[in-house]
Nucleic acid binder design. Sequence first.
DNA 1: ATGCCCATTGCAAATGGA
Length: 263
Amino acid sequence: MKDDSRLRIATFNINGVRTRLPVLKAWLDVTRPDVVCLQELKCTTTQFPVEAVREAGYEALVVGEKRWNGVAILARGAAPLEIRRGLPGDPADLQSRYVEAAVRGIVVGCLYLPNGNPQPGPKFDYKLVWFERLLAHAAGLLKSGHPVVLAGDYNVVPTDADIYSPKSWQNNALLQPAPRAAYQKLLKQGWTDALHEQFPDKPAFTFWDYFRNHWPRDAGLRIDHLLLSPKLATRMKAAGVDKAVRGLEGASDHAPAWVEVED
DNA sequence: ATGCCCATTGCAAATGGA
């Protein structure tokens, strides 16, 4: 349970919100984050379990899609005030990967960056183009001067220290030089990587895939990130990963990550 | 180079995800 003078903002790739509703509810009940960014809903906007989330104390802003992707912002005790749905820069892009809202005086961007596998190929190209659009939009957000958090599944392992074994993933889209360079370019705009700030020497993993006994072996990756604008970064008090959630029955392959800022 | 796991579709084993 968190300190009441702090605001906790979390991000969680739920990997199917209907299938994993018990996991989501259990986590919300125990940790009570104030703001939650969800990715990979894998349901349409109307299929989202609005009532179950409301019973847990949250109002939701949902941008769904029939089979894949889908993002949502939950706010405890109040409705997130929608700023935009979808990332600007390509009206033809219909994938539900970005939603932005104002919550408790903070601009919250919830994103699900394309995975990009297999690479090379069209999916990898889409990842890089999407990243460029994110860079452009993020620059605008910084320029606004508002306190902003950009939270979500970036599908980028920032450095070789952010994975149990870079060698076995060297050809994976998550470790390629181009998306890594794009992530560094994003940080250079002036964003603070909250988890990196909290754990500079021993990164906290946020993802353990279902293959090869990765979870029991703690063979994880850090790909879920919370980036804070300068104004919000000065208010940061703590950050962490709710690792135990990855071990629950019917778990997502991600664990929730969070940051706490002065309210 | 491939499968591993997982959920879905549709009711078995193939598909697609990342």
